[in-house]
Design a binder for these strands. Structure first.
Lengths: 115, 115
DNA sequence: ACGTTATATTGCTCAATTCGTATATATGTG
DNA sequence: CACATATATACGAATTGAGCAATATAACGT
């Protein structure tokens, strides 16, 4: 994972918000991300595919749901970048609303947490 | 400086290399960056303008030369991102060669350090 | 097999970026 | 003033990228 690939992946607003949510929540399925970001499902799916191809996230299928998480073998510096950014973002940025929407979702295991 | 603006600025290879050089060297003029990156001058100039408009760098004119540096009032988290990335980049990435070329330039004050 | 839900992909259009070349501006020198 | 150097900008071409709508695939339940 070179720096250019990594930052190009973060260069899009939707992908950045996905990554910050994943950095905050650990693991999320596509429907949760779709609902938290309040965007269409194909949009989230394509950006997640880009993040996967860039080597930033990995997916894990569990039945109908596909869970995404930040790759744990990501270089140390890249993980730190995400953590520091997560700690640095203000409440005015879109991510704050994403996180709030995510927190409002029911969280029963095995059931979709989106409407 | 919101996260989206910041990472969009880093999302281009040329801009990233410029910023890493600036993070490593403190302050550089356009001709030094042009020479270190081994790209055309208008290309560097335009990317520096984008970085300036994004609020990531600031410029200082000194006679013929315009020196660029990373804005010191950049949010703490953004500065840390740059420092961590600088420490994390490997010798295989283009930035390593940029830095080597920069180190090879003569450094007499008041004279252009490029060919 | 059928229907349902979750996710992925395709086809297309439109906007945004990037780059090279050429030219313009700014500053300094004689 | 003419001239040289450093930097900025304008313009068009080419590429890339994002978005939407529709459709395809995958897994589950009955």
């Amino acid at each position: 994972m070179d720096a250019n690939t990594f930052f190009r992946a973060l260069g899009d607003g939707t992908r950045l918000r996905c990554l910050l949510l994943l950095a905050a929540a650990g693991e999320l399925c596509v429907c949760e991300l779709t609902c938290a970001l309040a965007v269409t499902q194909p949009k989230v799916s394509r950006h997640l595919a880009l993040l996967r191809e860039a080597g930033v996230v990995r997916d894990r299928r569990a039945g109908l749901w596909v869970h995404y998480r930040i790759r744990e073998d990501l270089p140390e510096w890249a993980q730190q970048v995400l953590q520091i950014t997560l700690a640095g973002v203000t409440r005015r940025e879109p991510f704050a609303r994403d996180r709030a929407r995510l927190a409002r979702m029911p969280n029963r295991p095995g059931a979709p947490r989106c409407a």
